[in-house]
Amino acid sequence: MVNAAMFWIIAAITVIPAFSLLFARKAVHVAMSVVLVMVGLAAAYVTLGAPFLGMVQIVVYTGAVMMLFLFVLMLVGVDQREELKETIKGQRWIGLFTAAGLGAFLVSIVVRTVLPVAPTGVQGEPDVIAIMLFEKYVLVIEVLGFLLITAAVGALVLTHTPRLKPRRTQLEVQRDRVRVGADPVNKPMPGVYARHNALDVPALDPEGRPIEHSVSRVLKIRNQTVEGEQWRAQLEDPSRKEGDR
C-alpha cells in the first residue's frame, strides 16, 4: 500500500503540467512542463517500489530525452509560436471528446477491476534489476543493442552532412583573395589617419585622400552619417585649414 498524500501530490504534478501539452502556446513551456511530469513519474516509481527505475527515469527522461527535445526546439527556432486555432474542421472537438472518452473508459475499466495487492511490494534495487535483466531478459537486452545502433545510424543518415567541398588551407584562401583583386591586407577602419575617429568618418590613405569604403554601407543607407558631416566637408575642401575653425 502506498501513501495517499504522496499519490495526490504525484497526481497533481503529473496531470496539471500534462495539460500544457494541449493548451500551452510556446513549445518550450510544453517541454518544461513535460520535464515536470517526468519528475513526477519518477517520484511515483520510487513510491511504488522502483527506486532504480525512478532514478533512471530522471537521468534518461529529464536528463537526456527532454533535453534532446529542448535542443531540437532551439534548433528549429524557439520562438516558433503555434496558432492554437484549429484548421481542420471538427478536429478539435471530436479529438478532445474522443480522447476524453478513451480516458474515461479506461478509467472505468480500471475501477471495475478487482486485483488483490501483494502484501509486500518488490524493491527494484539495482542488483535485483541487473540480475533479472541478464538472466531472464538477456535476449531482449541484446536485441535492444541493435535498436540503439539503428537509432544512431538513422540520426546520422538524416542529419549528418559530410564535407562536400575540399577543405581550404589559409594559404589557398589568401591566394584566392589576391587573385580576385581584393585587399591583400585588412581593410582600413574608419577614422584611420583621419582627424576624427567617429564611425562615419572615412579613413585617409597615405596621400590624405578619403577611403570611402572604409565607412560601413549600412550607415549610409540608414542616413546615420550626420555626425561626421563637417569632417567630411573639410576633407573634401582641402583649402580649409584646421586652424580656420
Partner: peptide, 18 residues
Amino acid sequence: ILASILFAIGSAAVLLRR
C-alpha cells in the same frame, strides 16, 4: 487510473497539436 488519464492526455496532444 492516473496512467490512463495521462495516456488520454498524450493521445489528445497528438490529435490537437500542429
